[in-house]
Amino acid sequence: MLSPVSTDSNHHPLNGTDATEHSVGADLPRAIATLNEEETYRALLTATHWATLDHAYGSAAEAPKRLAELLAQDQTVRTKALDYLHYTLHHQNTLYEATAPAALYVAAILPNPRTTRTVDKGHNSFPGCMRAELLLWIASVADAVTDEADVLSRRHGFPLDDYPPAVSIRRIRPQLYSAAVAYVDDTDRPTAEAAITACIRLLDDPRLLHHRAALVPGIRQILGTSEQWQHRERAIDALDTWGEDSTGLEGQQNPFLFCDSDTPTDNGSRPIDTNEGYSEPPPF
Rank of each mutant, 00 (worst) to 15 (best):
L2Y: 09
S3M: 10
V5S: 04
S6D: 14
T7D: 13
D8Y: 08
S9T: 09
N10I: 09
H11P: 00
P13R: 06
L14H: 05
T17P: 00
E21L: 13
H22M: 10
H22R: 07
A26M: 02
A26Y: 04
P29H: 01
I32H: 00
A33G: 03
N36C: 06
N36K: 12
E39S: 15
Y41A: 06
R42I: 08
A43H: 08
L44P: 02
L44A: 13
L45Q: 04
A47P: 09
T48R: 09
Y57K: 12
S59W: 01
A61Y: 03
A61M: 05
P64M: 02
P64G: 05
K65I: 02
A68D: 13
A68T: 01
L70N: 08
L71R: 14
Q73Y: 14
Q73P: 00
D74G: 04
D74K: 09
Q75C: 04
T76H: 14
V77L: 13
V77P: 12
A81I: 03
H86I: 06
Y87M: 07
N93M: 06
Y96S: 11
T99Q: 02
A100E: 14
P101K: 01
A102Y: 06
I109N: 11
P111Q: 09
N112P: 03
R114A: 15
T118I: 06
D120V: 00
D120N: 07
G122I: 04
S125E: 14
S125T: 12
F126A: 14
G128W: 13
M130H: 09
E133P: 07
L136I: 01
W137Q: 04
W137L: 03
V145S: 04
D147H: 14
E148P: 00
D150T: 13
H156Y: 13
G157R: 05
D162E: 15
S168N: 14
R171D: 11
I172E: 03
I172Y: 02
R173N: 10
R173A: 09
Y177L: 11
S178M: 03
S178Y: 01
A180V: 06
A182T: 12
D185R: 15
D185Y: 08
T187K: 15
T187D: 12
R189C: 06
T191R: 15
A192P: 00
E193P: 11
E193T: 09
A198I: 07
A198Q: 01
R201Q: 10
R201A: 12
R201T: 05
L203R: 13
D204S: 05
D204I: 00
D205Q: 03
P206T: 01
L208R: 02
L209M: 12
H211V: 04
R212D: 11
A213V: 00
A213S: 10
A214Q: 14
V216S: 09
G218F: 00
G218C: 11
G224W: 15
S226H: 08
W229V: 00
W229L: 02
R232D: 05
E233T: 08
A235W: 08
A238F: 03
A238E: 01
L239T: 00
D240R: 13
W242K: 05
G243H: 03
E244T: 06
E250K: 10
E250M: 06
D260W: 07
S261L: 12
D262C: 15
T265E: 08
T265Q: 15
G268F: 10
G268W: 02
S269G: 12
I272Q: 15
D273N: 07
D273C: 06
E276M: 07
G277D: 01
Y278W: 15
S279M: 07
E280G: 05
P283V: 14
P283W: 14
F284G: 15
F284N: 13
